[in-house]
């Protein structure tokens, strides 16, 4: 799967691409894309592994309802990647179980939309 194969060319004029990282690997994204969208376009479906059965999960509902697309974004766990717009330099990581404790005095990036 190439990095652009899931992007539909017709109907939009995409801006200049930028990159963020997922588990240390660079991922290309275009302005306006959500993290979940950019990751899917890059062929990456795994968002997290579950706490009890260690099962893989990825985006399911794409509208903020199911919470299965949660990842650790810039150190903050439980960020719904389907609602979070990708920004250059974001550090995105697979979430294991409930994820690391959130940094004190901060709120989730999706809350700062």
């Amino acid at each position: 799967m190439t990095t652009t194969s899931n992007r539909i060319a017709a109907g939009v004029e995409r801006g200049a691409p930028f990159s963020f990282t997922v588990d240390g690997q660079p991922v290309e994204a275009y302005p306006g894309e959500t993290l979940a969208g950019a990751l899917l376009a890059a062929g990456r479906r795994l968002a997290r592994r579950t706490a009890w059965r260690d099962e893989p999960r990825g985006a399911f509902c794409f509208m903020g309802v199911c919470h299965d697309c949660r990842m650790v974004v810039d150190g903050v766990p439980n960020v719904r990647t389907c609602l979070t717009v990708a920004r250059a330099g974001m550090v995105v990581e697979m979430q294991l179980g409930f994820g690391p404790p959130p940094p004190l005095g901060d709120s989730a990036p999706e809350a700062r939309r």
């Binding site: 017709a10 109907g11 939009v12 306006g32």
Partner: peptide, 14 residues
Amino acid sequence: QVATELRPGSGAGG
């Protein structure tokens, strides 16, 4: 709607 930053083009978009 198409995300505003993706700038919907004419034609097949929307």
